[in-house]
């Protein structure tokens, strides 16, 4: 594995997040049933499965948006029955969304700056004057944001309202906003949905670079099996809310249950 030991004391290869026997249902609909898997520090972990398999629900459980009825989540050594969005965010879990969830009225710059809200704790008083500590803080974070903008090659759209950007760039800005939190665990919900080949290649490059340069652990949901096989270190396969396979791309590829789930079985 690539990442060096982080501030949490974990070294690459240690379990960063473990989901243990988690079940989630909405009324009578079971979204996730007794799923367990782990994500190791520094790896790229893919979650795949047919539509409605519970992949997005799983991400929502991990960052505390949904609360599972059963099971435990262990993150950085602390075991909880459920995560809280604020706790998840402040402990370094950030994410992007399946349907781009940017702040449409704000510029690219402001969107990514908003991603650093948790890191900005200056007092309200100085905010009123936009001088002294408030301005210093603002400039310091602007510098960090500019690094991300350079990294994602979006300098030209810095001041454009994101609502006016084409879809592919919006996805990239959203990645930038998630990176602005300097996450330990980055959850990507279909980062390449609706993209053309070139855009997919760009996005794959960014994901690999994030993983390599910053040592960020990544969990991603993706439907393009080719991309998933190339990018990820390990893959979890869900179907109808249950885990049907877990392992390296080669193991998963040759798993009969996975082949059946994707291609169907003759009855």
């Amino acid at each position: 594995m690539r990442a060096p030991g982080g501030k949490d004391g974990l070294v690459a290869g240690d379990v960063l997040l473990a989901v243990d026997n988690v079940s989630l249902s909405f009324g009578g609909v079971k979204a996730i049933t007794e799923v367990s898997f782990d994500i190791r520090k520094g790896e790229i972990r893919a979650i795949i499965g047919p539509n409605g398999a519970g992949k997005t629900s799983m991400l929502n459980v991990i960052n505390g948006f949904y609360h599972p009825q059963q099971g435990r989540i262990t993150y950085k050594g602390a075991t909880r029955q459920k995560m809280r969005p604020y706790v998840a965010a402040s402990q370094g879990i950030s994410r992007t969304f399946q349907n781009v969830a940017l702040f449409k009225g704000m510029s690219t710059l402001d969107n990514i700056m908003a991603g650093r809200t948790l890191k900005m704790q200056g007092s309200f008083f100085w905010q009123l004057f936009r001088h002294g500590p408030a301005m210093r803080e603002e400039i310091e974070h602007r510098r960090k944001v500019e690094e991300i903008i350079d990294f994602l090659e979006i300098q030209a759209i810095r001041k454009t309202p994101v609502g006016k950007l084409p879809y592919g760039l919006q996805k990239r800005v959203e990645l930038g906003r998630a990176l602005a939190m300097e996450p330990d665990l980055l959850l990507l919900d279909e980062p390449m949905a609706g993209m053309n080949l070139e855009e997919k290649e760009d996005m794959s490059r960014f994901i690999l670079d994030v993983n390599n340069q910053y040592g960020t652990t990544i969990a991603l949901i993706e439907h393009d099996i080719g991309v998933v096989m190339d990018l990820s270190d390990r893959i979890v396969v869900l179907e109808y809310g249950r885990k049907i396979a877990d392992g390296t791309p080669d193991q998963v590829k040759s798993d009969q249950k996975v082949i059946d789930a994707y291609l169907g079985v003759s009855h």
Partner: peptide, 12 residues
């Protein structure tokens, strides 16, 4: 205002 869910998951 623009996306309260995303804001919440970003720690706002």
């Amino acid at each position: 205002r623009d996306m309260d869910i995303a804001a919440e998951l970003m720690g706002i």
